[in-house]
Design a protein around this nucleic acid. Structure first.
Lengths: 342, 342
DNA sequence: CTGAAAGCGCTTACAG
DNA sequence: CTGAAAGCGCTTACAG
C-alpha cells in the first residue's frame, strides 16, 4: 500500500536525465526546454512524485514554518487570532505550528526550547499570565528568530507587537455609559498585574475625569480571572453598596453577562436601572438577553496583523526595518444592555 | 544580533573532536565517556548550540509533525478538539501544523497537496462540508501517510475514525424529554446531507418509537447550517403549528438557545410549556437563562483520542494494527431548560 | 539547454 | 571510547 516515496533521483533514472535537470524542470526553471519540462512533469505525475519540501527547505535553509504560542487554543479570542494568523500565513505560503502554554511559564519555556530546534522562521506569542522574564525568548532572538507578541506583550522587550487600544476602548465604553445618562459608573476589572487590564482601568478613570465625574474606588472591583463566577460575586457587591451604580463597565464579556443576570435576578432592570458594557464581543454577547453592548476587539484582524508583520520581518533580508507596535482600533458595539436613549 | 547558528561541526572544531562524537555526546550515547559528554555539553551551552532537529529528522526520515485540517479554527468545537490534539501530541513529542479548509473542497485539496510535500507523519481531518470524494486523501495514503478522521468522517474510506455516538446521544436527549412528560416532541435538525445530523435525526425517531410515540414529520424542521437565525425561524414555525410541541430536541446549542428565546418572547414558559434540549454543551449553554440541557460532546477527548490513535498508527512499524472507529460516549447534561420534574 | 559536484546539518554502520 | 565516510533529497554555482 505505501510504496516508498519517489525522489528526484528516481525520476532522473527513469528519464535518463540528471537530477539537476529534473529539479529545474519541476521548478519551472527558464533554462529548461519546454519539451523536457513536459516530459518530466508527465513522468512525475505518472509515478506520483511529491517533492520533498522539507529537504528543499533544508538545503535552502528555509522551513516556511511559523511557530505560534497561545495560552489556550479553546479560548475564543485566541482561536480567532489563530484563525487570522492561519489565513494570512496560508496566503503567504507559510505553515503554522501551534503550541499552548496553558498559562504555565514552565511549559512556555519548554516550547521555546523546542522552537529553537525546529527552525521555525518566526514566532508569534501571546504570553502566559505567569511570564515575568523573557530569557527564553531572548535566546531565540539571538538565534536570529523574529518574534512578535500580541495582546499580552512584554513591556521591556524589543520586538514587534500587536495590541488593541485597551485604554481607548475602555474610555469609549465608559464615555458611552456617561452619554446614556449614567453618573455612578462601576468597573469590574481584570487582574491589575496584567498590563492590558490596567490599561482598561486607566481608560475608565480617564473617561470619568474627562466628564468631570468624581472617581470612586468603592465602585471598582478587581477580579483574578474575570471569570463568570467572579462577575456574579462582583455584581452582588455592587448591589450591596449603600448607593449602587447606575452603570458598569466590565473588562470582559463573561463578567458582564454574569453581572447582567445577577442584576436581573435581584429585580433591577437592565439597562433602565443599571446599564452594562462588556469587552470582547464574544458570540454569546449578541445572543444573551438583553444583547450585550461590548467592545469588538478584532481578534481575527489581530492575528492577520501579527502574521503580516512577522512575515515582513522574516523576508526583510537586510534587517532594515525597525520594530513597531501596532495598536488596533476597536469598535464599540452598541446593543440593548446599555441603550437607554433610543 | 543574529549570530549564525552553531553546528555540530563548529563544536567539533572547537573541541578537537569529530562531529560523530559530538553528535553522540549530545544524544547521550552510552559509548561516549562521561568526561567527554560533560565537556561537550559545557561547550554547547557556552556557544548556545541548538541542535537542528529538522536536519536530524531529515536524516532519520522523521518530522515528528502532524497535520491537522479543520473547517474553521474559531468554531468552539474544533478549537476544543485541536486543544485535545495539541495536548496529547505535545506529551508524545509531536508538533501540530494546522490548516483550515473553511469548508471549501478546493482549499481542502490544496492543503492535502501541501501536506504531501511537507512530510507530515500523519494527518487528522474533519472533512469540509463540501467534500464528497476523497481522491486527495487517497494520494496521501498511497504515500504512506496515515490519516484519521474525526466528527465529519467519510463512510466509504478505510481509515481510523473518531466519532461521537450521535444516534445514541439524540436517543438519550429525546428520551429525557419523554421522561419529563413531553409527548409532542419537535426536532430542529441539521443538514440531512451530513451523516452526523442524519444520525441525530434517526436517534430522535428511534426514541419516539421506543416509547410508542407516533412520529410526526410536521414537528421536524431541517436547517442548512443550524445557525442562530435558523433556530429562530424554526421556532416560529413550531409555534405556528395547529398544535405546537411541548418539547424540542435541537441538533446544536445555537438553534436551541435561539428557540428558547423565541418561545419566551412569544410568552411560553421554558421548560414548563415547552422543554428544550440542545447539542454540544457550548460554554454559552450554562450561562443562558434558563441554563440549557444539552449533550456534552467531549470535543477535547475527541482530539485526544484522534491524536492517540494516529500516533499509534505512525509508530506501528509493521502496520499490524487494523483500522478502527472509536465511538465516544456522550453525557446528557441536564439543566433547567428541560427540567420539569424536580 | 543539460550535467557533475558540492553541500545544507545531522546520524549511524563500520572500523579500529 | 572515538573517527572517517556515506548519505538523507534536494538546489545551485560552475562548467560546457
Amino acid at each position: 500500500m505505501s510504496s516508498p516515496r519517489i525522489t528526484l533521483k528516481d525520476l532522473a533514472k527513469e528519464l535518463q536525465l540528471s537530477p539537476s535537470t529534473i529539479s529545474r524542470a519541476i521548478a519551472g526553471h527558464p533554462a529548461i526546454s519546454e519539451s523536457t519540462k513536459k516530459k518530466v512533469r508527465k513522468k512525475a505525475e505518472e509515478l506520483g512524485f511529491a517533492p520533498n519540501s522539507i529537504a528543499a527547505g533544508f538545503r535552502k535553509k528555509r522551513t516556511h514554518s511559523i511557530g505560534v504560542i497561545v495560552p489556550k487554543i479553546d479560548v475564543h479570542f485566541h482561536s480567532l487570532v489563530i484563525s487570522g494568523i492561519e489565513d494570512l500565513a496560508y496566503r503567504e505560503g507559510y505553515n503554522i505550528t501551534i503550541f499552548q502554554s496553558k498559562d504555565s511559564i514552565d511549559r512556555e519555556k519548554e516550547i521555546a526550547k523546542i522552537l529553537q530546534n525546529r527552525l521555525v522562521e518566526g514566532i508569534i506569542v501571546c504570553l502566559s499570565n505567569e511570564t515575568k522574564s523573557y530569557t527564553h525568548f531572548k535566546k531565540l532572538v539571538k538565534l536570529g528568530v523574529p518574534i512578535i507578541f500580541y495582546d499580552r506583550v512584554p513591556s521591556d522587550f524589543q520586538a514587534n507587537k500587536v495590541v488593541i487600544d485597551d485604554f481607548g476602548s475602555a474610555f469609549k465604553a465608559t464615555e458611552h455609559l456617561i452619554e446614556q445618562g449614567c453618573r455612578r459608573i462601576g468597573h469590574i476589572a481584570g487582574n491589575q498585574g496584567t498590563p492590558i487590564f490596567r490599561h482598561r482601568f486607566e481608560g475608565y478613570k480617564a473617561a470619568l475625569k474627562a466628564h468631570k465625574i468624581p472617581y470612586n474606588p468603592n465602585l471598582v472591583l478587581e477580579t483574578q480571572n474575570l471569570s463568570y463566577e467572579e462577575g456574579a460575586t462582583s455584581a452582588h457587591k455592587l448591589i450591596a453598596l449603600p448607593q449602587m451604580p447606575d452603570g458598569v463597565f466590565c473588562s470582559n464579556d463573561y463578567t458582564a453577562i454574569s453581572a447582567v443576570q445577577v442584576f436581573q435576578k435581584s429585580g433591577f432592570k437592565v439597562p433602565e436601572q443599571i446599564a452594562v458594557v462588556g469587552f470582547s464581543n464574544y458570540p454569546i454577547s449578541r445572543v444573551i438577553q438583553p444583547n450585550l453592548t461590548t467592545i469588538n476587539d478584532r481578534a481575527f484582524q489581530m492575528g492577520e496583523a501579527a502574521a503580516k508583520l512577522l512575515i515582513r520581518q522574516i523576508e526583510d533580508e537586510d534587517n532594515a526595518i525597525d520594530f513597531e507596535t501596532i495598536t488596533l482600533k476597536t469598535d464599540l458595539v452598541i446593543r440593548e444592555s446599555s441603550l437607554r436613549k433610543k
